[in-house]
Simulated scan of single mutants.
Amino acid sequence: VEVHDRDPAPPGDLAHPGSMPDPWQEDGRGLLLISTLSSACGHRPTERGKAVWFTLPAV
């Protein structure tokens, strides 16, 4: 799966997310979910920003 974003800044740390998200906030869990559920993940620059990608494990 690959998602494109116009912001060129790299996302948070996909390999080792920082602190746990605040349980009272409605956001901040995306990269934690990706790193937990995927078999591989990363990001790359694009001409218009960046792409964040992940691979789901085979079942």
Rank of each mutant, 00 (worst) to 15 (best):
E2Q: 13
W24Q: 14
P8V: 06
R6I: 05
T36I: 03
M20T: 12
D13M: 03
R48N: 13
P21E: 04
S39D: 04
P11F: 02
P17F: 04
D27I: 08
S35V: 04
A15Y: 00
P10L: 02
D27K: 10
P11D: 02
H16L: 09
D7W: 06
S39Q: 08
H4M: 10
I34K: 06
G30F: 13
L14S: 00
D22H: 11
G30R: 11
I34M: 15
H43G: 04
P17G: 03
H4Q: 14
E2I: 08
P21R: 05
A58M: 04
A51F: 04
V1G: 11
T55Y: 03
G49W: 09
T46Q: 01
L56I: 12
V3C: 10
D27R: 12
H16P: 00
E47L: 11
K50I: 11
A58Q: 08
S35T: 15
P17A: 04
F54E: 00
S19E: 15
V52Q: 06
V59N: 03
V52C: 08
A9C: 02
W24H: 14
D27P: 00
S35A: 14
L14K: 00
L32D: 13
T46L: 03
G30I: 11
F54W: 15
A51D: 06
D13I: 03
D7F: 02
T55F: 03
A51K: 06
G12K: 06
E2T: 13
W24A: 15
P45S: 14
A9N: 08
E26Y: 09
R29C: 13
G28W: 10
R6Q: 07
R44F: 01
G28T: 09
P17C: 05
R48K: 12
A9K: 08
E26F: 10
P45L: 13
P8T: 04
T55I: 02
A9V: 07
R44T: 09
C41Q: 12
T55P: 00
S38H: 01
S38C: 12
L14H: 00
H4Y: 13
G49K: 09
L31R: 12
M20W: 13
W53E: 07
S19L: 14
L33C: 12
K50T: 04
D13A: 09
S19F: 10
V52S: 08
G12V: 06
P21Y: 05
P23I: 01
A58D: 11
C41F: 01
L14G: 01
L37K: 00
